[in-house]
């Protein structure tokens, strides 16, 4: 579904991604872990070209999205993204947050988009918040709405950039539950996270990144219980106290 070939990204002199090769299969849940500054968020943001790769190729559904002249907006429709800071649109109601992209990008009718939005809101139990504005909602509620806002575009893959890092601890669970639910439905997901519990329970594959490279990867069982690379061992020792 997504193929990444020798992906490099530099910010000025800073070499953040140093040649990443990776293939993400349809329906797979890939969890990316690693110390901060290792390039995992940059890797994720390159996948939908929020960061422009310095070199290398990214192929989504046999289309090379790093080619010049590709309609990137069309490609981004296929890839939903959830941010650490939620990034709901504060001047729009919850309903409008969800319907704006389907109506403006896919030219869906307002009524059709609202029906889809209502179905999604029911799924996360927030149908009574349809007319609220984001600032009235808790962080957990905002992030769940950010997830279904992306789902309203019916993406083929969902990218999560540390979706629970900005949340109060008691709200982490409700967001992870929505994500687990999504994984169970067979959604292809790439998740950058520090939630090792989520990685173990839901991940099909875990990638360990450090210093701009994928140093080790495997099933959660392999990676957490029998890490081979000394850097992985060191990292896991520090966080799994």
């Amino acid at each position: 579904m997504i193929q990444v070939v020798n992906l490099n990204k530099k910010f000025g002199d800073l070499h953040v991604l140093k040649g990443i090769n990776e293939e993400i299969k349809d329906g797979e849940v890939v969890v990316v872990i690693g110390p901060s500054g290792s390039g995992k968020s940059t890797f994720l943001r390159c996948l939908n070209l929020l960061e422009e790769p310095t070199s290398g190729e990214i192929i989504v559904d046999d289309v090379s999205i790093t080619d010049k002249g590709i309609d990137i907006n069309k490609q981004r429709e296929k890839m939903g993204m959830v941010f650490q800071q939620f990034n709901l649109f504060p001047h729009l109601s919850v309903m409008e947050n969800i319907t704006i992209a389907p109506t403006k990008v896919k030219n869906m009718s307002k009524k059709g988009a609202e029906e889809i939005a209502m179905k999604l809101l029911k799924r996360i139990g927030l149908e009574d918040k349809a007319n609220s504005y984001p600032r009235k909602l808790s962080g957990g509620q905002q992030q769940r709405i950010a997830i279904i806002r992306a789902l309203a575009m019916e993406p083929e893959v969902m990218l999560f950039d540390e979706p629970t890092s900005a949340l109060d601890p008691e709200m982490v669970g409700e967001v992870l539950d929505v994500m687990k639910d999504l994984a169970k439905d067979g959604m292809t997901m790439v998740v950058v996270t520090h939630e090792m519990g989520f990685a173990k329970e839901v991940g099909d594959r875990v990638l360990f990144m450090d210093d701009g490279l994928i140093l080790e990867q495997g099933t959660p069982n392999e990676l957490f219980n029998n890490p081979q690379n000394p850097r992985t061992q060191d990292f896991l020792k520090k966080i799994l106290v």
């Binding site: 939908n48 929020l50 907006n73 069309k74 981004r76 429709e77 890839m79 939903g80 993204m81 941010f83 800071q85 990034n87 709901l88 649109f89 504060p90 001047h91 704006i100 992209a101 403006k104 990008v105 950010a146 806002r149 992306a150 575009m153």
Partner: peptide
């Protein structure tokens, strides 16, 4: 306006112009 607003709009498949018109400029104007 926080850069995350533009990123969120673009990640939903909205083009630069559409994002400006419906997401950035209404907030900026206020």
């Amino acid at each position: 306006i926080d850069g995350g607003q533009m990123e969120a709009a673009r990640s939903l498949g909205m083009g630069y112009g559409v994002s400006m018109q419906f997401i950035i400029i209404p907030q900026a104007l206020k």
